[in-house]
Design a protein around this nucleic acid. Structure first.
Length: 610
DNA sequence: GCCGTCACG
DNA sequence: ACGTACGTGACGGCA
């Protein structure tokens, strides 16, 4: 093929020594014709440079490649003063789309997503060093290439900010320097790959990686690219409505307080509540007296202001975080909202969602409904919502092998009502709404690693009464008690806890001499296998559903995951078949000692579908 | 950049 | 005597 000139600027990723230690010595690159002969490439590490796009030409600035350990290339695409190489992408397409060539990279979801916008559909096995680092230790807050390189190779990468200096875009960085910086990323990820994947194997995390996390990358890409439609005009109406509402509440608050002040300032609010009005401060924060929800709810029995404040905050939150924020995030090209699903954030194995976070859209109350109605299906389509019923308690039943819990789920009994009848020692028919509410809180508490203090706070009852509930619960569920003791013991001995699929979370504080820290570690040791297994489960379901939808050539698209719920957009003529498929795949994603139950529905918007 | 607060599972 | 339910992300205020 042609275009060898593309690689005139290819250069070695020049590495800086972190310490006096080892590190790849200088090798000359020669003129290896990389992208032209996919058959000769065994493995390809690549990375998009940098921060995605050239703000002026709105295309990829460049791509760095590593086909051989220790050396790498930078292929400028829309780099200022660089050769004009729009052909670069055309040439690389063949290699990137070659299913037989494994791809190595750090945060491949990002690079693949960018390439898709250029019409390149990366295929093949993915070795993502960021994901590998995450599976090896999900407690770490930062899995950036900088950090991972430092931890596993003691290699210090040149900081991007230093390369950028005062320039506005990576595209303006002189080509020589850009090449060195960019090539380093691809080379470093390639260097880390063997180390990290060897460790994954030794830790028994290979199956989790290749069967769950790796295929999930492609699904998250699909979901992010697909996005979800929201009704901008309706949001603008809601915003005005909230403005009026907030204005009314605001003047009421100033009237009651006898002066105007910044309601959003906890500091000013404290002055009004606890100094001017002389209300009792019930709780302290690091910085002063708490004005949190629980406190204001309690104080509302004494004075009318706290309730107004809570009211104000509810509307203010709705307006700033959702109603006003969402329209700004509508993509101009697609007209839809595209979240980012992060696969390497949570310590338990869950996903997280950001910019915008679509996993915390309001659902409670009239305004919850109003906001969810804004999430709508395209013309000729519906939204399908499918959520696991009581998933964490079912997983607890499975993991603890508790006879009573398993029996309840096998008989499909309302679990909170059943717990209430056990706690209060009465027939299920005699359980009142209030008893059920208490039992529901206890059931949640059990999954969180219950403590008398925590439960007493949640129920606003004396710790002694809470302790009595817990004792009664364990009396009826010895299997659960045993599970908790075993899990804590296992954490003490192994230093980590694990999920059904073998996902691990280290528990470094489990033997702490500080009781608070130790108990905190015990609670998360108890909670993590349950929450993490639920995360494993829905990830498996997502993969199976995607495969089945593809197999059957259906146009139904997965658009959101909200921990125990999946949201789809489906053409109207596919509703029945898609719903059957989704429900079946979710309920059979794992075989546990209790049945899994999925509630599913559809409608023109998210509220109707739920 | 941290803190308090609050939206969700 | 201490201070807690588990897991997230976004907002405004304030240093």
């Amino acid at each position: 093929m042609r275009q060898y000139s593309l690689f005139e600027n290819q250069a070695k990723g020049d590495k800086q020594e972190a310490t006096d230690e080892k590190k790849p010595k200088d090798e000359t690159l020669g003129s290896v014709p990389i992208a032209y002969s996919p058959l000769s490439i065994a493995e390809l590490s690549f990375d998009i440079e940098a921060t995605g796009r050239n703000p002026i030409s709105d295309s990829i600035v460049g791509i760095s490649l590593c086909v051989e350990k220790g050396s790498a290339y930078y292929v400028p695409v829309s780099h200022a003063h660089g050769p004009n190489v729009t052909d670069a992408l055309v040439i690389l397409k063949e290699t990137l789309e070659d299913e037989s060539i494994p791809k190595v990279g750090h945060n491949l979801k990002y690079d693949i997503l960018i390439l898709r916008q250029e019409g390149i559909h990366v295929k093949g096995i993915l070795y993502d060093t960021m994901l590998a680092s995450y599976l090896l230790n999900p407690n770490k807050p930062d899995h950036s290439l900088e950090n991972v390189g430092l931890e596993y190779l003691m290699y210090k990468k040149r900081p991007f900010t230093e390369v950028l200096g005062k320039l506005h875009s990576f595209a303006e960085v002189p080509l020589d320097e850009a090449t060195q910086y960019a090539a380093e990323d691809a080379a470093l990820s390639m260097e880390l790959k063997n180390i990290l994947f060897e460790k994954l194997k030794n830790e028994g995390l290979e199956d989790l990686y290749f069967n769950i996390e790796m295929p999930l990358i492609y699904i998250l890409i699909d979901m992010e690219e697909e996005g979800v439609r929201i009704n901008k005009e309706r949001l603008e109406e809601l915003s005005k409505e909230l403005d009026r509402e907030l204005g009314i509440i605001e003047s009421r608050i100033y009237a009651i307080a006898g002066e105007s002040f910044n309601i959003n300032s906890p500091k000013q609010l404290q002055k009004i509540l606890f100094e001017k009005l002389g209300l009792k401060p019930l709780k302290k924060t690091k910085t002063g007296y708490s004005t949190g929800m629980d406190v204001l709810e309690e104080l509302s029995k004494t004075h009318e202001l706290p309730m107004e404040i809570l009211n104000y905050r509810t509307f203010y939150k709705l307006k700033t975080t959702y109603v006003d924020a969402l329209p700004k995030l509508i993509d101009k090209k697609t007209g839809r909202v595209h979240t980012s699903f992060n696969q390497t954030v949570t310590a338990t194995g869950r996903l997280s969602s950001s910019e915008p976070n679509l996993q915390n859209i309001p659902i409670r109350g009239d305004w919850g409904t109003k906001v969810r109605e804004v999430f709508t299906a395209d013309e000729g389509c519906v939204l399908i919502s499918a959520d696991y019923s009581q998933i964490e308690l079912r997983i607890l039943a499975h993991m603890s092998d508790d006879e009573g819990l398993i029996d309840a789920f096998k008989k499909d009994i309302d679990i909170h009502t059943r717990t209430a009848s056990e706690l209060f020692g009465i027939a299920k028919e005699a359980v009142t709404d209030d008893m059920r509410r208490v039992a529901k809180t206890v059931n949640f508490g059990v999954v969180y690693g219950i403590s008398p203090f925590g439960l007493s706070e949640a129920l606003s009852i004396p710790p002694k009464e809470a302790a009595a509930f817990i004792e009664q619960y364990f009396d009826k569920h010895p299997g659960v008690k045993q599970y908790m003791e075993n899990t804590v013991k296992a954490a003490q001995q192994q230093g980590y806890v694990s999920t059904v699929m073998g996902r691990k979370r280290p528990t470094p504080e489990i033997n702490s001499h500080n009781a608070n820290i130790r108990q905190q570690a015990e609670r998360l040791a108890i909670n993590t296998p349950v929450q993490g297994t639920a995360a494993d489960l829905i990830k498996i379901a997502m993969i199976n559903i995607r495969n089945r939808l593809k197999e059957k050539n259906l146009k139904t698209k997965m658009v959101l995951q909200i921990h125990d719920e999946l949201l789809f957009e489906a053409p109207e003529n596919e509703i029945e078949i898609a719903m059957g498929l989704i429900k079946h795949e979710m309920e059979s994603a794992m075989t546990l000692s209790v049945p899994l139950r999925v509630d599913i529905g559809h409608g023109k918007n998210w509220s109707e579908a739920h």
